[in-house]
Design a protein around this nucleic acid. Sequence first.
DNA 1: GCGACAG
DNA 2: ATCTTGTCGC
Length: 223
Amino acid sequence: MKITKLHEWNLAPREAIELQKQLAYEVVTRDEFDAPIKTVAGIDLGIDVKNDTCRAVVVVLNFPQLDLIETAEAILPIQFPYVPGLLSFRETPVAVVALEKLTVTPDLILCDGQGIAHPRRFGIACHIGLITGVPSVGVAKSLLVGKYGSLGLTRGSTAPLIHQNERVGVALRTKDNTQPVYVSAGHKISLETATGYVLQCAPKYRLPETTRLADKMASYRKK
DNA sequence: GCGACAG
DNA sequence: ATCTTGTCGC
């Protein structure tokens, strides 16, 4: 797929913060796409400390069947430190390379990280949504900011995620008795709509379980 | 000033 | 992100 280069990535942390503040104004937190959604992409980001590299794995599924129709991967040297709140400057470049390899342009992108549930309301899902122009959703395995109250134990249970008196996302249980994921709007989509898609895609796109499985396989392989 | 802190 | 023991559930 084609991706627009909005700016350089080799910024100093301080400059990156200012850029986020500006770009945050461009984020659209309401549904702004042509229904129906026919394809959904999921991006998993991570780093390999041993090789000093960032990695992005992208899967594209048709919707709502959730059959796998395409995958792409990219690996790049790490060129930005991990700073809470500036994750997108570390991980987005490799995500861009992987996304550009896709022959199809997905209708929705589920990102590994926060959307507007971010100190400056501009997490990596917002960034990816902005540069791709594709509706995006932040699906994080842990919290960056915000708090939430009691959450039911069954699949589909949600609790509002509040930060500075604003509802910035939801804690969502995608499977009975497992850790929830944290959903927040990325770009061109509302929280309600985003939550619905994440829940529907969860059988195939299940970050907590996927991550744990990958960790187990990695440690098991070492022994 | 102290603690918290996506991946 | 990664490391790590015992424990629970299918």
